[in-house]
Amino acid sequence: MRVAVVIVTYNSADVLEGCLRSLASGARGVELAAVVVADNASADDCLTVAKRVADLPVITVQLGRNAGYAAAINAGVDALDLDELDAIYVINPDCRLASGSIVPLAECLKTPGRGIAVPYMVNPDGSLQPSLRRRPSVRRAVVEAVIGGDLAGRLGRLGELVTNPREYERPGPFAWATGAAMLLSVPMIREIGPWDESFFLYSEETEYCLRAADRGWLTWYEPASVIEHIGGDSGTNPALAALLIVNKVKLFRRRRGRPAGAAYYLAVLLGEGARALAGRKISKASFAALLRPSEVWLP
C-alpha cells in the first residue's frame, strides 16, 4: 500500500526528530510516499529538524499561525495527492513507531467498511497507554462522575475510556480512539471530508471518528501494530484539561441536541465538581471552565 504520514507540530523540536527517525523502520512493508510536517507557527526549530532527516520524503507546510490540530491536519492532507495514495497516517510528533508497525494497520483497511485503523499504544516504559473509547453517553458520564473514569472503564462497558488491559489483547471496532495515531483510508477521507476546525484542540478526533461511523466507516483497533506515545500534559496542565472538558461537552451537545446535551453537561459538571472539592487542580480548572466556557484559554 502507498502511505503518507502527516505530523502536526507546535514547538515540537525536542521530540520530532525521534519520531521521524522511527518512520523508515515503522514503514517497512509499505511504500512511504511522503511525510508532511504541518507546523502551527512554532517558535522553535521544528522545520529545521524536519529538513535535516534527509532519508525521508519530507514536505513542510507552514500554517503561519497556531491554527489548531484539525486545521494543521487538513493543511497536511491538502499538500498530498490523494490519487497517489491508499492511506494517510496521522501521528503526533511525540510518537515512535515500532518496526513494521504500519503494515498491520494497512492490512486492516483492506477490509471493506474499515476507514480508520489505530494501533496498540504504549508509554515510554512499555506499559499500556489506554487509547480506545466507547461512544459518549449521558449514562457513561454519570457513572464516570460517580466512580471515576478509570474504574468505570474496567467494569464491563460502563465507562467511555477503555481501561481494562484484556480489551487491548484482541482486534475489533471501537467508537473512537485517541488522535495521536490514526491510519485513515483515502476512500473514507474523500467521502467524509476534512477534520472539523471548530475544535481547536481535543474532541476533533472524536468528532471525526463518529462522523465517519455515521457514514458507515468503522474505527478498527489492531494490537499487532505498536506505537510509543510520550503523551501530552492534558492530565497535568489545568488550562489544557479545561479545554478538553469544554470541547467534550460541546461535541456531545452538537451531536445529541440540547436536552441530552444539558444532561451530559450536568453529569460532567458533577464529576469535575466532586474532584475539585477533593483538591484536584485540573478539576478545579475544568469546573470553572464549564461554568464559563467562553473564557476558556486557547494557546
Rank of each mutant, 00 (worst) to 15 (best):
P119F: 02
L184Y: 13
L85Q: 12
C95K: 00
E107C: 06
G113V: 07
P187Y: 06
V186P: 00
V162S: 14
G148L: 03
V142N: 01
R96T: 08
L151V: 15
L155R: 14
G153K: 03
L155K: 12
E191I: 09
E107P: 03
K110F: 04
E144I: 01
L132R: 13
G193M: 12
I147K: 09
A175Q: 07
G149I: 02
L151F: 11
F174K: 14
L132E: 04
T111C: 00
R135N: 03
M121K: 08
T111H: 03
D86A: 06
R114F: 05
V138N: 07
D94R: 06
I189E: 02
S127G: 13
P124A: 08
L97D: 02
E160Q: 09
R157A: 14
A181T: 11
I91P: 06
E191C: 10
E191R: 13
V142K: 12
G156E: 01
V122C: 08
P119G: 03
G172Y: 08
P165K: 09
P130N: 05
E160V: 11
Y89F: 15
L109P: 12
G126C: 07
I88H: 03
L183K: 00
G159D: 13
A152V: 13
E169A: 15
G156R: 01
Y168F: 15
L109Y: 04
R135H: 11
V186F: 01
D94C: 06
A145I: 01
Y120R: 12
S127E: 09
M182E: 13
R135A: 09
A145K: 00
P93E: 03
T178H: 06
G172A: 04
A117K: 01
L128T: 04
A152I: 13
P130I: 09
R96E: 12
P171Y: 14
A177T: 07
P187S: 10
A106R: 12
D94W: 02
L105R: 08
E107I: 03
A180M: 13
G115S: 03
C108L: 09
L109D: 05
A181F: 11
A175W: 06
E107Q: 14
V142W: 06
P187N: 07
S99P: 00
V103N: 04
L158K: 11
R114P: 05
R154L: 06
R96K: 13
L151K: 14
S127I: 01
V103C: 03
P112K: 07
S127Q: 10
G179D: 12
M121F: 06
A175E: 04
R166S: 15
P165M: 14
P136K: 09
P187Q: 12
W195M: 15
I189F: 05
I189H: 02
D196S: 14
A177G: 10
K110N: 07
V118H: 00
L97H: 14
A141G: 11
T178F: 08
S185E: 01
C108Y: 07
Q129I: 02
G148V: 04
A180E: 14
E144Y: 00
P187L: 10
L105E: 08
M121V: 15
I147F: 05
M121W: 06
S127F: 06
G153M: 02
V146L: 15
L128A: 02
L183H: 04
V143W: 04
R170E: 15
